[in-house]
Simulated scan of single mutants.
Amino acid sequence: MDMVGTVCVFCGSSEGAREEYAEAARGLGTALAGRGMRLVFGGGRVGLMGVVADAVLDAGGEAVGVMPEALLEKEVGHQGLTELRVAGTMHERKAIMADLADAFVALPGGYGTFEEFLEMLTWAQLSLHEKPCGLLDTAGFYRPLVSLFDHAASEGFVRAEHRSLVLLENDPERMLNLLQSHTPPATGKWVVPEEL
C-alpha cells in the first residue's frame, strides 16, 4: 500500500443524538492534520461534515470539499475550506472524492453515508481500487452493519477475503494506523462461482 496522504471521510450532515459522534469527528480531524494528511469530504459546514472539517482546519491541515451544485444551499457549503469543488451531480461528486482519496473512512451518518461507503467497498471487492475502507465505530454505531456483513459472509454472499476489506476501529488514531498498514487481499479480481 502506498502512503496514505488523503483520506475521504463520509459522514452525516447531522451531528446525531450523541455527543460522542462529534467528539470522534473532531478527534479524526485533529489526527488527520497532525499526521499531515489531507481531508476530502462532502463539503458541508453542518453536522459531522462541518465538525471534521473545522477540526482539520483548526489544527492547520487541508480540507477539500466536494459538493453538487444542487446541495450547495441545502447542505450549506463550507466557505472556509482549503478548496471547495462544485460537482454537477452526486455521481460526479463521488467520482471526484474517490479519485482524490488514498483511503476511505465512514463516521456515523445516514443513508448517504452508508451508500457512499458501500460503493467504495464494492469497488475494492471488484479490485477497481486497492484503497482501504474503514468504519469508525463510535459508540458501537456500526455494530449492526458489521453484523449484517458477517451474516452475508456466513450465508455465502461475501467471501472471507472480501469481508476482511472492512476495517473497524473506534479510535481515530488507531483507525489511521489501520489505513496506513492496510494490505489488500491477494485474491485480485472478482471470483466467479465454481460451477461457471
Rank of each mutant, 00 (worst) to 15 (best):
V105N: 03
E119L: 08
E119D: 13
A101C: 09
M67S: 02
A106F: 07
T89Q: 12
G88W: 00
E69T: 06
E83S: 14
G109L: 02
F117W: 11
F104V: 14
A101M: 09
I96T: 09
M90L: 11
D99H: 14
A87P: 05
M120A: 13
M67L: 11
L107H: 01
V76S: 13
T113F: 03
G60T: 08
R85M: 02
E116S: 10
A63S: 04
K74N: 04
L81S: 03
P108K: 02
D99E: 15
V66P: 07
F114L: 14
A70I: 13
M97C: 03
M120C: 08
F104T: 07
E62T: 15
L100K: 12
D102N: 09
E69H: 08
A103Q: 00
E75K: 07
A63N: 12
L84Q: 14
H78W: 00
G65H: 09
A70C: 13
A95N: 08
D99A: 15
A106Q: 06
F117N: 01
E62K: 14
G61L: 03
K74E: 12
L81N: 07
A98C: 00
V86C: 07
G110I: 00
F114D: 02
V76L: 14
T113Q: 06
G61W: 06
E92P: 10
M97F: 12
V64I: 15
Q79K: 15
Y111P: 02
E73V: 13
P108Y: 00
G88L: 00
E92H: 12
G110N: 03
M120T: 08
F104L: 02
V76K: 15
E73N: 08
T82S: 14
P68H: 05
G65Y: 11
L84A: 09
G60P: 10
G110M: 01
D102H: 11
F104P: 08
P108R: 04
M90F: 07
E69F: 09
L100Y: 11
H91I: 04
G60N: 07
G60F: 05
A59P: 12
E62Q: 15
G61Q: 06
H91R: 14
Y111L: 14
F114Q: 11
R93A: 08
H78T: 01
E62V: 15
I96H: 01
A103W: 05
A95W: 06
F114G: 05
T113A: 02
E92G: 04
D102C: 01
E116L: 07
G110A: 07
